[in-house]
C-alpha cells in the first residue's frame, strides 16, 4: 500500500440558496483513521458526500494523490458507506456484493473471491444466500461495510457506520476499522464520541459547516467527550435540524 497517500481538501464549500452547509473547509488527510464529530446539521454528511463525488461543491477542490474527485480513477480507490444505506431487498447478500463489485470494475472471478472473503470478515458467510430483506439492521449494516471494502479502497469514508449496531457489534466493528486504518485513509463520522476515542488517531470537528478542530487526540489531552460538549455548549447542545 502507498505510504504517501494523501487526500487534499481545499476550501471546500457547499451553499444552498442562502444557507452555507460547508464553509471553506481545508484539510489534508494521510494514512490513518480520522473521526469526524459534529452535531446534527453541522455539515458532516454534506462534507462526506462531496468527498465521494456525489454532491458537487459550490467551491473548492478535492483530490486524492492528484486525482480529482470527479474522475473514475478517484472512485476506483474509494469505499463509501452512506448514512442511509440502501439495498435491493430481493437480492441475496452474495448477489448484492457481486453487483457492487461489477460497479467498481472488479473482474467477475476476482469479485466472487473477494465477496466470500468479506462476507466472512463481517460474519455473514452463513447468510450469504439469504435475501437481504430477511436481514436484521445489524446484518444490513455489516453488509454495507463489506460492500465498501470490495475494491480494497485507499480512501474509506464511513458515514455513521455504527448506527443500528448493538454494543457487541459496535466493539467488533471498531476492531475491524482499526485494522483497516493501518494501510488506508479512513474517515468516519459519528455522534458517539467513544467510538472515535477508541480508534481514531485524528479528530475532526465540524460546527455550522466549519471545521472547528482538527488534530491528534490522546488521553493526556483530557476527555474528548467533554471537549466536544464544550464546543457545542454555546448552542445548548445538538441542533435538531437535518443535515
Amino acid at each position: 500500500m502507498d505510504r504517501t497517500m494523501e487526500l487534499i481538501v481545499d476550501r471546500l464549500t457547499k451553499q444552498y440558496n442562502n444557507r452555507i452547509a460547508v464553509d471553506r473547509v481545508s484539510v489534508k488527510l494521510q494514512q490513518g483513521i480520522y473521526g469526524l464529530l459534529g452535531a446534527n446539521g453541522a455539515g458532516k454528511t454534506t462534507f462526506m458526500r462531496m468527498l465521494c463525488g456525489i454532491l458537487r461543491p459550490t467551491g473548492g477542490t478535492v483530490t486524492f494523490d492528484g486525482m480529482d474527485v470527479s474522475e473514475e480513477a478517484y472512485r476506483a480507490v474509494l469505499g463509501y458507506l452512506p448514512q442511509d444505506f440502501g439495498y435491493y431487498p430481493e437480492f441475496t447478500a452474495m448477489d448484492f456484493l457481486l453487483y457492487l463489485a461489477a460497479l467498481k470494475g472488479i473482474p467477475k472471478r476476482q469479485a466472487k473471491k473477494k465477496a466470500e472473503e468479506l462476507l466472512a470478515l463481517v460474519s455473514l458467510q452463513e447468510g450469504c444466500r439469504k435475501k437481504i430483506k430477511t436481514f436484521s439492521g445489524g446484518m444490513k449494516q455489516r453488509l454495507g461495510i463489506a460492500q465498501a471494502l470490495l475494491n480494497d479502497p485507499k480512501l474509506l469514508i464511513l458515514d455513521e457506520p455504527t448506527a443500528g449496531l448493538d454494543p457487541k457489534e459496535r466493539v467488533r466493528f471498531r476492531n475491524l476499522i482499526e485494522q483497516l486504518g493501518k494501510d488506508r485513509i479512513v474517515l468516519l463520522s459519528t455522534h458517539i464520541v467513544s467510538d472515535i476515542e477508541h480508534i481514531a488517531g485524528q479528530v475532526l470537528m465540524m460546527k455550522d459547516g466549519q471545521m472547528i478542530y482538527q488534530g491528534h487526540w490522546d488521553e493526556e489531552m483530557g476527555d474528548l467527550e467533554e471537549f466536544y460538549l464544550q464546543q457545542f455548549a454555546e448552542e445548548g447542545g445538538e441542533r435538531s435540524a437535518e443535515e
Partner: peptide, 19 residues
C-alpha cells in the same frame, strides 16, 4: 427506484457508476 431506495449513492460512488 435507485433514488427512492437510496442505492443511488452506492452506484454513483462506484468506478463505473456514472458511465
Amino acid at each position: 427506484e435507485e433514488h427512492t431506495r437510496r442505492t443511488d449513492q452506492l452506484i454513483l460512488t462506484g468506478a463505473k457508476g456514472k458511465s
